[in-house]
C-alpha cells in the first residue's frame, strides 16, 4: 500500500483516496453543438497508456479536495501531483 502525496495534506495512505480517471478532459464549452460522436468521445472514451498518465484523484477520507497526479501505470508510482487547472508538469524521462 503506497503513500500518495496529497498537495494539501502531505503523504497519506492510498486507502484515503478515490480515483477519478483521466485528467485534462474538460467539459465541452458547447455540448449541444457537438455531434453524437464528439459527445460520446467526451463521455465514454479515455486514454489507457502504459507509463506516465495524468489522472484525477480525490483525497476523499481527508481534505476532500480533488487534485491531479501523473502516475506511471506500469509501476504505479506517482511522479507528480498538482492542482486542477494547472498544466501537466513535465516529467524527466529518467524517472519513468
Amino acid at each position: 500500500m503506497q503513500l500518495i502525496a496529497c498537495p494539501h495534506c502531505g503523504p497519506r495512505e492510498e486507502v484515503e483516496f478515490h480515483y477519478g480517471g483521466q485528467a485534462h478532459v474538460d467539459y465541452p464549452a458547447a455540448p449541444q453543438e457537438l455531434t453524437d460522436e464528439q459527445w460520446a468521445r467526451y463521455v465514454f472514451f479515455r486514454d489507457n497508456p502504459k507509463g506516465p498518465f495524468a489522472e484525477r484523484w480525490n483525497h476523499s477520507a481527508g481534505c476532500r479536495r480533488w487534485f491531479n497526479a501523473v502516475r506511471d501505470t506500469a509501476s504505479y508510482r506517482f511522479l507528480a501531483v498538482y492542482q486542477p487547472g494547472e498544466a501537466r508538469p513535465v516529467i524527466p524521462e529518467t524517472r519513468t
Binding site: 478515490h18 476523499s60 476532500r64 486542477p84 487547472g85
Partner: peptide, 17 residues
C-alpha cells in the same frame, strides 16, 4: 450521500471553480 457529495465537489472544484 457520500458519492453525491464527492461528485458535486468534483464539479465545483475542477470544472466550475
Amino acid at each position: 450521500a457520500a458519492p453525491v457529495l464527492e461528485n458535486l465537489e468534483d464539479w465545483l472544484q475542477t470544472e466550475w471553480p
